[in-house]
């Protein structure tokens, strides 16, 4: 049986946020800073509550999540394909990698005008921007993960008479999986950042729209509510990704998996 302290471990994550909120609430209850600039946590929660009661919140959440899902899946899929090719084939790497590495250095917001020009102001340009953001971490980690696979393990496959395809499928891909998952997590994180950029640029719905709306109508509580929701959604999606991938990574002999 697990000890009680062991079971309560996940609860530790809430200690610090709760303390911060508590102090914030106590201080702002006395209006140290004008509340129209820094509302109390309670009024931020109330704002979320109001949005939820009108059904507006679900709509905003749904559209933002849907954009992230589409953009992330598209970006990660293309990155997986290209990362796998450049990680495995030297000639593909020589051809593709320098180009992709230089594209990576372009500030992401520089793409916005071009995507709007090409794809219009509606969904496709937003999804394209998010996909661009999600692409690079996934591509980099997968390609590098494949390049970093231990030569010693590859030699075992060569002695077993594996051809290139078998080497890739049975050694390179499983061995690069931890790096790939790290890349996916990074890509998902960037997808959340880029959805904000895309929605702030021009949207009539979504959490990013709430940010702009809050600014234009001078409602700081709405902005903070939106930020809070981004934080929660980002964390939840990362947690989901970790849960989905942990099944495939249990073989890792990690220091963090050691029982204390």
């Amino acid at each position: 049986m697990k000890r009680l302290s062991q079971r309560l471990r996940p609860a530790r994550a809430f200690v610090l946020p709760f303390l911060i909120l508590l102090i914030w609430q106590l201080v702002q209850a006395r209006e140290v800073v004008p509340t129209n600039l820094l509302p109390t946590p309670v009024s931020v929660l109330e704002t979320i509550g109001t949005l939820a009661s009108t059904g507006e919140l679900t709509e905003h959440l749904a559209i933002t999540c849907w954009r992230v899902v589409q953009g992330f899946l598209l970006g990660a899929a293309v990155a997986t394909l290209l990362g796998a090719i450049t990680g495995v084939s030297r000639s593909a790497r020589d051809l593709l990698d320098p180009l992709l590495q230089s594209l990576r250095n372009i500030p992401s917001l520089a793409w916005v005008p071009l995507f709007i020009l090409w794809l219009g102001i509606y969904e496709p340009s937003k999804v394209a921007l998010i996909a661009t953001g999600a692409f690079f971490p996934v591509y980099l980690s997968l390609a590098q993960g494949l390049l970093d696979v231990d030569r010693k393990l590859v030699e075992v496959g060569r002695m077993a008479g594996f051809d290139r395809f078998q080497l890739v499928r049975r050694i390179l891909i499983p061995a690069a999986l931890p790096a790939y998952v790290t890349g996916l997590r990074g890509g998902l994180g960037l997808a959340w950042m880029f959805v904000v950029a895309a929605e702030v640029m021009g949207a009539s719905k979504g959490l990013g729209f709430l940010l702009v709306d809050g600014q234009q109508t001078g409602r700081a509580a709405l902005i903070l509510a939106s930020i809070l929701l981004f934080a929660v959604l980002g964390k939840l999606s990362d947690l989901l990704l970790c849960l989905l991938s942990s099944r495939f990574l249990q073989w890792q002999d990690s220091h963090s998996l050691q029982p204390a």
Binding site: L153, E155, V156, F162, A175, L177, W251
Partner: peptide, 15 residues
């Protein structure tokens, strides 16, 4: 040089 993601059985069967 065992494949860390495979069980002992699968490692022996490797190849």
């Amino acid at each position: 040089r065992l494949m860390p993601w495979l069980s002992v059985d699968d490692n022996v069967a490797f190849g």
